[in-house]
Design a protein around this nucleic acid. Structure first.
Lengths: 210, 210
DNA sequence: GTTGCATAGTAACATTTGTTACATAGCAAA
DNA sequence: TTTGCTATGTAACAAATGTTACTATGCAAC
């Protein structure tokens, strides 16, 4: 574990801190689709991403859902932070988008290190920063873009995250993540296919040129 | 200034920190409508709200805009924090919603205190937390609510912020903040009036029961 | 191959939201 | 009072999105 850790965070943290992370953190290796956090869960630890990607979803009571953003490999921790502080329940759902390796840090340590290590403090601030910017981007998308533009952006983001030009999702899954209906997505995807930008197949979408 | 400061933050910060804030902070008293931050500005200081309220708006390049949230009186500082860290430009616009008193803290101090005072650190984290939650609520509104529900929520929030049952806005202003058109707002407001929930007047809306 | 199920295609229609265009009303300055 | 400006009301229409319902297709289990 220490090697993975050094690869991802060696530049960021001093050795003492790395050692502490190694000592108190719990290594986790989860498969694609693994549910890391469910809405309403109490959060007692904070994840550091080593590799893979995590999808952060917002759900409301009526079963509505919406993709907020992805956490990427070298990329920092979650907005989970937020939920840690108060003994509040999670407002979001976190699901592994890819096979993902991460280290879970217990809350107490997280707080302790905040006083102890400047690099840790900066890391946490930096994470908050990134998260807020990510949320802003999400707001831009749903407030200012039409569904066809949102879909395009979605396809681009998704293929970037997976680092692959084929997206293995059904229309229904995409519809859930963009909070619309399957028929709408099918319609728009077909239009993109007619424009020669993608190639539709069962259970996957090949990207030709976005 | 020290008295205002103690009233608003006395419970939160220890005396040493209060003294430093008093020493290094700049007191500001701005009228309603005063533009505190414009998109693209570089942020060199962080505001502590003493009284009043600040409206945070998101704008995009095409002139689209959208109300993100309000900062309230005793309420903590801004997402401005975020913009401070990096030497990045502001992604948002901040406008005094009411006559507002605040203290501006220079960035350097902000960072220095983060290491020095636990209460300051917690305050900053807490602020980030609140801001993220506020953004989540905004996302919920635009993603899951129809325009009529958003308008209702807007009227409630606005009257709460101003602590008054009459809202002094034109339909056009509301339309900008909800990122829709004046006609749409007029239409929906008229419906609410017909339901007996509000009373429409020129330049103001009296709330009867929401 | 046949069956059964999940996925995708598509038409027709409903609803919501946005747009245009014009009429009316309130208010203040001349 | 008249004028002019801003704000509001409203109809008619357009576009975007959502819904229903049904068909077709791909794939796997049998």
């Amino acid at each position: 574990m220490i090697q993975d850790l050094k690869n991802s965070y060696g530049d960021l943290f001093e050795d003492d801190l790395l050692a502490e992370i190694n000592q108190f953190g719990t290594y986790k290796d989860v498969p694609e689709g693994y549910k890391l956090i469910e809405i309403g869960n109490y959060i007692k630890s904070m994840p550091l991403l080593i590799s893979g990607a995590i999808k952060i979803m917002r759900d409301d009571d009526d079963g509505d859902e919406l993709l907020l953003y992805f956490l990427e490999s070298g990329d920092t921790c979650a907005m989970t932070l937020t939920c840690c502080l108060g003994t509040t329940k999670s407002e979001i759902r976190a699901i592994a988008e890819l096979p993902t390796k991460l280290i879970m840090i217990p809350i107490e340590k997280m707080e302790e290190w905040t006083g102890k290590y400047k690099s840790w403090r900066n890391f946490v601030f930096e994470s908050y920063h990134t998260r807020l910017m990510e949320m802003l981007e999400t707001i831009d998308s749903i407030a200012f873009l039409k569904m066809d533009e949102r879909l395009l952006k979605y396809l681009r983001d998704k293929s970037k995250i997976n680092n692959y030009d084929t997206i293995f999702s059904t229309h229904q899954e995409i519809a859930y993540e963009l909070h619309t209906s399957r028929v709408v997505i099918s319609r728009l995807l077909k239009k993109l296919e007619n424009q020669g930008k993608i190639k539709l197949n069962r259970n996957n979408i090949k990207i030709i040129s976005l």
